[in-house]
């Protein structure tokens, strides 16, 4: 199945892309996608304990199981205001 990945701020800079698509096995979680990305872009790995994650524009935990067509977002620590 295929998911869309959204990256923001510093994470986007590290990967050099705001949006990616990735094919993942059924049963994959947000964490599965994160580990795949972190192996592609080693600079991301340092963010593992600091990121927040979302699926289809709702906050979700790393163990959330994904469905085909889901949009997964990885969010570095926020700094609005």
């Amino acid at each position: 199945m295929r998911v869309t990945v959204r990256l923001f701020a510093r994470l986007r800079d590290i990967a050099g892309a705001a949006e990616l698509t990735r094919d993942v096995a059924p049963g994959s979680t947000i964490g599965t996608v994160w580990r795949q990305l972190a192996s592609e872009y080693p600079g991301l790995a340092a963010y593992e304990q600091a990121i927040s994650t979302a699926v289809n524009a709702d906050y979700a935990r790393m163990d959330r199981v994904l469905g085909d067509g889901d949009e997964v977002a990885f969010l570095p620590p926020v700094s609005g205001g």
Binding site: F8, D13, A50, I51, S52, P77, V78, S79, G80, G81
Partner: peptide, 24 residues
């Protein structure tokens, strides 16, 4: 500042940096 997925990138004399505060 705690939970809104918003980020500021600061451009200063000599460079720029993403500001990172709270893990939302």
């Amino acid at each position: 500042k705690q939970i809104a997925p918003i980020w500021k990138r600061e451009f200063f004399d000599g460079g720029d940096v993403w500001i990172e505060g709270a893990t939302a």
